[in-house]
Design a protein around this nucleic acid. Structure first.
Length: 229
DNA sequence: GCGACAG
DNA sequence: ATCTTGTCGC
């Protein structure tokens, strides 16, 4: 029996930004950093959400890939209304509910969840990847397309080079080059992962494109489903 | 106080 | 996030 209601349906969803920030501060200590052996990861789930222009409707997608072949194993989606407005730093309250719903429809148990956004690279060290990882108590990491908090030197131009992302004197993630000469992505720990493992895994998942394949697949699936509504 | 601010 | 075609470059 859970000590605290974990899901929105359980009635603990914040009514506004203030409560949401308090919730993040409460949950942040639950994040655990653990070594992630990228070589041993078998199944990876990519998560993403697409919003309908103008309408208050969205589609969340979870796509499970074989980390070795990058073949899609299965996928699931959820259609919903945003449960929270977009506020920088409170992003997870918008996307976590539908993402958790989509993940709940999966038959497999992915070894790692790859989120479109940040983990510890967050003002309160509790970004989307932390939030989702803690709720599911599964390994999770975040991949962002633009920096949110902190600063990083530009990594070397070659794929694989990276530079620490530092915020408030803390290393909260890495700016990682996944393609030669292309703008880096920003990797951070979500839950039960570490930066070395996350970096290695992201590189493994992004052999050809800037973004890891699981996220690209989830992005495409959520788009396609939304277009078909 | 002002600007910046994941998706 | 989304509104938006072609175009330049590897």
């Amino acid at each position: 029996m859970p000590a605290r209601p974990l899901f929105p349906s359980a009635g603990s969803w914040p009514s506004g930004p203030e409560e949401a920030r308090e919730e993040q501060v409460r949950l942040a200590p639950l994040v655990r950093a653990e070594p992630l052996d990228a070589e041993r990861v078998g199944l990876v789930a990519g998560l993403d959400v697409t919003y309908a222009p103008g309408e208050d409707r969205l589609v969340a997608a979870a796509v499970v890939l074989d980390a070795g072949t990058l073949e899609v194993v299965e996928s699931a989606t959820a259609v919903a209304r945003p449960a929270f407005p977009y506020v920088p730093g409170l992003f997870a309250f918008r996307e976590v509910p539908p993402l958790v719903e989509a993940v709940g429809k999966l038959r497999s148990a992915p070894d790692v969840f790859v989120c479109d956004g940040f983990g510890l690279a967050h003002p309160r060290r509790f970004g989307l990847a932390c939030h989702l990882g803690v709720l599911l108590d599964r390994p999770a990491l975040g991949v962002g397309k633009s920096p949110f908090v902190g600063t990083a030197e530009p990594p070397g131009e070659r794929r694989g080079s990276w530079a620490p992302l530092v915020d408030g004197g803390e290393v909260v993630g890495r700016a990682l080059r996944t393609r030669d000469g292309v703008k880096p992505v920003y990797v951070s720990v979500g839950h039960r992962t570490d930066l070395d493992g996350a970096t290695e895994l992201v590189l493994r998942l992004a052999p050809h494109y800037r973004l890891p394949e699981p996220i690209r697949r989830a992005d495409r699936l959520s788009r396609d489903v939304l277009a078909g509504l």
